Computed example of a mutant assay.
Amino acid sequence: MRGARLGWRAIAVALVLAVATSALTACVPPPVLDEFRRVAQHLLNKDQSTTATPAPTDRVYRGNTGFGDLKVGDCVNDLAALDYTVILGLDVVSCASPHDSEIYALPALAPSPTYPGDDAIQSLADDACHSAFKPYVGIDVERSDLDYDFYTPTENGWTQDGDRTATCVVFHDNAQTTGSVKGTAETSVTSS
């Protein structure tokens, strides 16, 4: 499971480098859920109050909550945002209703004012989100039917806005989840 994702991540990074031509203050997620569909969201805005302006050709998704206002335990519908090149926020919904993902950790990545590079940021976020999975869900990700993904700051967000936080999301592959997965320690959760 982890090895297959690493292979897709390398392909997705190559595709993203070909697609991503602007340096917006944004967050970037590695592809995990639907590798080719997630490539479209590799320029995400971490906070609606950023200094960067999307290019006229960018398709902007605003969501109802900016990345800077998201909290651990928030349930979000983020799949609709995947067709956009810039995401200024996600749609937070009640966890009692069907939703795409749940935020389970917001780890700080590194204090350095110098951007460590895309690969280093992806690796730091992957390690932090992997480590936070079991304490939140109650079971190792390798034993769970759930999976995780994350959003990370871009170089512009890192250097200009001081954004050093990853946003870790847990989801049920190929289905929405109803209810929180916190502490379920199950290999599967109720999905719609």
Rank of each mutant, 00 (worst) to 15 (best):
G3I: 01
G3N: 12
G3F: 08
A4V: 03
L6W: 00
W8Q: 14
W8C: 08
W8P: 00
A12N: 08
V16F: 05
L17M: 06
L17H: 06
V19L: 08
V19S: 05
T21N: 05
A23T: 04
A23M: 11
A23V: 02
A23I: 00
L24S: 02
V28L: 00
P30R: 12
P31I: 02
D34W: 06
F36D: 02
R38M: 10
A40F: 10
A40L: 12
H42K: 06
L43A: 10
D47T: 02
D47Y: 11
Q48Y: 05
Q48K: 13
T51P: 01
A52S: 15
P54K: 02
A55W: 03
A55T: 03
V60M: 11
G66R: 09
F67E: 07
G68Y: 04
V72E: 12
V72H: 08
N77L: 12
A80D: 15
A81P: 05
T85Y: 02
L88P: 00
C95Y: 12
A96I: 00
A96S: 14
D100I: 00
D100G: 02
I103T: 08
A105W: 02
P107I: 03
A108L: 09
L109H: 07
P113K: 10
Y115D: 07
P116V: 00
D118C: 02
Q122V: 12
Q122I: 12
L124K: 11
D126V: 01
D127Y: 11
D127H: 14
C129V: 03
H130F: 12
V137D: 10
V137A: 15
G138H: 10
I139M: 10
V141N: 11
E142T: 14
S144I: 14
Y148M: 14
T154S: 15
T159M: 07
T159S: 13
T159Y: 03
Q160M: 00
D161E: 15
G162C: 07
R164I: 05
T165C: 06
T165G: 08
F171D: 09
N174K: 14
N174T: 07
A175Y: 14
A175F: 05
Q176K: 10
S180I: 04
V181G: 13
K182M: 04
G183D: 02
T184K: 15
E186P: 00
S188Q: 14
V189T: 10
S192K: 08
